[in-house]
């Protein structure tokens, strides 16, 4: 669709906005609707948009599949790792209280970190799935 001039231009313009919006959703999950999952989806949709307009190959050069695989794994590890950290600090799994000096702040930090883990996994997996579907049958 690259030859479609209008779309190409609009895509260039919109992509950073959507990506930033995704980050906004990611980090404001505890204030408004949203969170890691939604942010992950939006970010992956931004890349999908780019891939639709500029072609799959270009997108895969920017964000190679093996990096995505790595990211997908690391998101889960971040989440579970947070739980392990609380274990190491002597609390129950996924109890964020000890992450900071006072429990509520610890909880806040914990939520932020695990949401990040969710976001990373979701966006990379979604994009990975898109790559798999879109690239199937490519000559």
């Amino acid at each position: 669709m690259k030859h479609n001039l209008i779309l190409r231009l609009i895509a260039k313009f919109l992509f950073p906005v959507i990506a930033l919006f995704a980050f906004y959703v990611q980090f404001h999950g505890d204030y408004g609707p949203g969170g890691g999952f939604q942010a992950g989806v939006i970010l992956s949709v931004a890349f999908i948009f780019y891939a639709l307009v500029y072609g799959l190959k270009t997108t895969e050069e920017i964000l190679p599949p093996h990096v995505l695989r790595l990211l997908a794994s690391s998101g889960v590890l971040i989440y579970a790792g947070t739980g392990v950290v609380s274990l190491l600090m002597g609390e129950n799994f996924l109890d964020y209280d000890p992450l900071s000096s006072e429990p509520a702040a610890g909880q806040h930090l914990g939520i932020l970190v695990i949401e990040l883990g969710v976001g990373i996994t979701v966006s990379s997996v979604m994009l990975m799935i898109f790559y798999a579907f879109a690239g199937r049958g490519q000559p």
């Binding site: 999950g29 505890d30 204030y31």
Partner: peptide, 11 residues
């Protein structure tokens, strides 16, 4: 107060 997140769903 438990989690300092006003969005209870996220909490």
């Amino acid at each position: 107060e438990d989690t300092s997140a006003p969005n209870i769903v996220t909490a």
